Amino acid sequence: MSADATPLLSPADQALIARYLQHVQVEKRLAERTVALYTLDLEKLGASAAQAGVALAAVQNHHVRRWVAQMHAGGRSGRGIGLILSGWRGFYAWLGREGLISANPVQDVRAPKQARPLPKALGVDEAMHLADHSDEEDSPWLEARDAAMVELLYGAGLRVGELVGLDVAASDAAARAGRGWVDAQAGDIHVQGKGSKRRAVPLGRAAAEALARWLAVRDQVSVAAADAAHALFIGQRGTRLTAQSVWQRLRRRSLRAGLATPVHPHMLRHSFASHVLQSSGDLRAVQELLGHANIGTTQVYTRLDFQHLAKAYDAAHPRARKR
């Protein structure tokens, strides 16, 4: 324990904490780093209890709630408070098993909710610049593949798992395996999203053209597995492309295109949703396109849209512009 916290604890409370830390280290075999974090959490608990003039075994629910409020008022994040509460909860659960308390005072205490961060989206010009970018250092095969990937992620709002799960065409094998496919003739992309829910997404003109260029060269690499024979996107070794590879290629492509922020697949999905909503204002349509079960999930993009409008107002309105 730290020198600051130790004098505040009674010998009995110090002994309790020492026994618990020995328990998690020896019997539960937790990592040294985890034990160190537990130690810090219990130092804070002991200091708070001693300051309140209450023994650790006598701490009640209202004490814990007050300490949570104090941490929150002091600027500690909801996530940080949640981690501390987790450590305290485990300690009191152990005291209960030892027969030293009748109820866990931390059991129903939850950390303050964090404000949900806005998803990161590219501006329209940035997204268009990335989609139009051509990397001359790549082979024509890689360039065609990566361009098609960008067009499907941004032009159709696909998740990266949906992208790598696409087959060239519909088949019984694809249906059984829960994979999607592209129907270029009908102009549709059929994907299986979260919760095994299928949806159809329009295949835009630019995406269709990029796919046609990719399919014209795709077979220049021999497939190395039966699954890859049907895969829309394959790697240079002839296997179905992985989500990790898509992340790496997209990050590389965005940096080479000169974008200030490295782009990841979900950023293009966010950009798709934000830009469609800015142009149409149709939240229900965006919900369907993204495959969200709850429209509340989609409503976060209205906040992005408001930010866009607020920036336009600040830049254009004479009463908003700084003198």
Rank of each mutant, 00 (worst) to 15 (best):
D305Q: 11
R199Y: 07
H292A: 07
A312P: 05
H317I: 06
A147C: 10
R110T: 14
H72P: 04
A15N: 13
W88T: 03
E137N: 06
W94I: 11
L215S: 04
A273D: 08
G180Q: 01
R269C: 04
G193I: 06
Q25S: 10
L241H: 06
A170L: 06
Q25E: 14
R249V: 04
A127C: 12
H72R: 11
H264Q: 13
R218W: 08
A273P: 05
D314S: 14
A148Y: 01
L130V: 06
I101C: 07
H264S: 03
A210C: 08
A69W: 08
L203W: 01
L40Y: 15
L290W: 02
T39K: 07
A175E: 13
S222D: 13
A210P: 00
P119N: 12
T302W: 02
H129F: 02
I84H: 01
H133T: 02
V191F: 07
A226K: 13
P105R: 00
G178S: 11
V59R: 00
A200T: 12
V24N: 02
G291S: 07
L153T: 01
Y38E: 01
S86A: 15
A103M: 09
V217C: 04
A260K: 09
G75L: 10
D183I: 02
S102E: 12
A315P: 06
R205Q: 11
E209Q: 12
A5W: 01
P7A: 14
L163G: 01
M267A: 06
A285Q: 09
A174Q: 00
R159V: 01
L283G: 04
G178Y: 02
L83P: 00
P140M: 10
R89S: 14
D132G: 15
V150I: 15
A121M: 08
A229E: 13
I101S: 03
H72L: 08
A50Y: 08
A184C: 09
A175W: 03
A148W: 00
R205T: 11
Q278N: 14
L42E: 05
D172C: 07
D146F: 00
H62N: 12
G82A: 12
L142S: 11
I81P: 00
R303W: 09
A257K: 01
S245R: 14
L9T: 04
A243T: 14
F233I: 03
L255F: 06
I234Q: 04
V223L: 10
A18H: 15
I189W: 00
L166D: 01
Q244I: 11
V221M: 09
Q220F: 00
Q220E: 15
W181T: 01
Q248H: 13
A169P: 04
R253D: 03
A310W: 02
R321G: 08
Q70L: 12
A52V: 09
A115M: 09
Q278R: 07
F91S: 05
H266V: 09
A169Y: 12
Q25Y: 04
V24K: 10
L268M: 14
Y92R: 13
R110D: 07
R33D: 15
L118N: 13
R19H: 14
V54L: 09
V217F: 10
S2F: 09
I295Y: 08
